[in-house]
């Protein structure tokens, strides 16, 4: 697989996952602002932007302003629109490798963006978030149904898993609340589509430590951080496996980092989990970017863009 194409696939995975999660996070945020009369809308907006890595803007941070920035801003590659554009652009450069159906799904989503945005401005942002959720789900389905399980698929799923770790981390950060019984934990679970799964698992009311445990550590739920890390770890091992099998230390930096992070999560008690949560979430995000860099260095091997100059004739 061409390094350039592998990189594109990796980023298709990351950006599409980012679009989906951002839609989910925003949906919860907008919902929460509407439902909670005591919530200070502007400061909640600033909190969210900070969690998503955006500096507080000059303008309003009410839910409309936040939605503008995180959903519709085409210049921000982390906004939903920006992420869809970036994913589509990457797919365009890898069109010979992604299946036609995957490409058409992304391209059609991209074509529809302005239409959905207009609709959202008329009917409220929820329609936009739902469209994005549906389209990204369709994309994920097509990836699973139409791509061979070769390295291309691996890089895409690796990107998706890493982004999921990162985004679930941010999702948790955005919902950390002083009140362990706050309604926001329920919305958080809902936004992950995890509410029912949680209820079936614990069979009792939602409380902070269990939600954290569920989203971070559940071995079976495919959106938990643990699950995503294991997935990333497994794929990195498969990518690495075909090449130099290490008998002692693992040579692959990405594998080492993912493995270590997963183990640290795995053997932590629930109480520790809750106490260390803020630090833990920050370190998860850091893990993602380090792994992303390690993968880039190892597999995408970009050198500086080559531009040629004529030598001064002698």
């Amino acid at each position: 697989m061409l390094s350039r194409v592998a990189e594109s696939l990796f980023w298709i995975g990351r950006y599409s996952e980012r679009a989906e999660h951002t839609a989910r996070i925003l949906d919860v945020h907008v919902q929460r602002v509407l439902e909670d009369p005591w919530l200070d809308e502007a400061s909640a907006g600033r909190e969210l932007l900070a969690v998503m890595g955006l500096p507080a803007p000059d303008g309003e941070t009410d839910s409309r302003g936040v939605t503008e920035l995180l959903a519709f801003d085409p210049d921000n590659p982390s906004s939903i629109t920006g992420a869809i554009c970036a994913a589509r652009e990457n797919a365009r450069g890898a069109r010979d490798v992604v299946s036609s159906e995957v490409w058409e799904c992304l391209n059609a989503t991209w074509n529809d963006l302005s239409h959905s945005e207009q609709l959202a401005r008329r009917l409220g942002p929820h329609v936009f978030f739902r469209t994005i959720r549906e389209r990204t789900a369709m994309l994920a389905g097509l990836v699973d149904a139409t791509l061979a399980r070769d390295d291309g698929w691996r890089f895409l799923v690796l990107g998706r898993s890493l982004e999921r770790v990162d985004m679930t981390g941010r999702l948790l950060s955005s919902s950390i609340s002083e009140d362990p019984a706050s309604q926001s934990w329920v919305s958080l679970l809902r936004s992950c589509g995890a509410h029912e799964a949680y209820l079936r698992t614990y069979r009792r009311a939602v409380d902070a430590s269990r939600v954290a445990e569920f989203l971070l550590l559940d071995r079976l739920f495919p959106r938990s951080v643990y699950w995503s890390l294991s997935m990333a770890e497994q794929i990195l091992a498969e990518l690495d496996g075909a090449r130099g099998r290490a008998r002692f230390t693992l040579d692959d930096k990405a594998r080492r980092i993912v493995g270590r992070t997963r183990t640290e999560l795995e053997f932590r008690s629930v109480d520790e989990l809750v106490d260390d949560m803020p630090d833990l979430l920050v370190s998860l995000q850091r893990t993602c970017s380090t792994v992303s860099e390690a993968v880039t260095t190892r597999y995408f091997a970009r050198d500086a863009p080559r531009s040629w100059a004529t030598e001064v004739p002698a």
Binding site: L2, V5, R95, D96, F300
Partner: peptide
């Protein structure tokens, strides 16, 4: 490229060394 099942490369994916042309892959 897709219908032939071959790689679609850009100039930056290719390198010539000693008249041997190679493409940069993950392997």
């Amino acid at each position: 490229a897709r219908q032939m099942g071959v790689e679609l490369v850009e100039g930056r994916d290719l390198t010539v060394r000693n008249n041997n042309v190679t493409m940069r892959t993950t392997e």
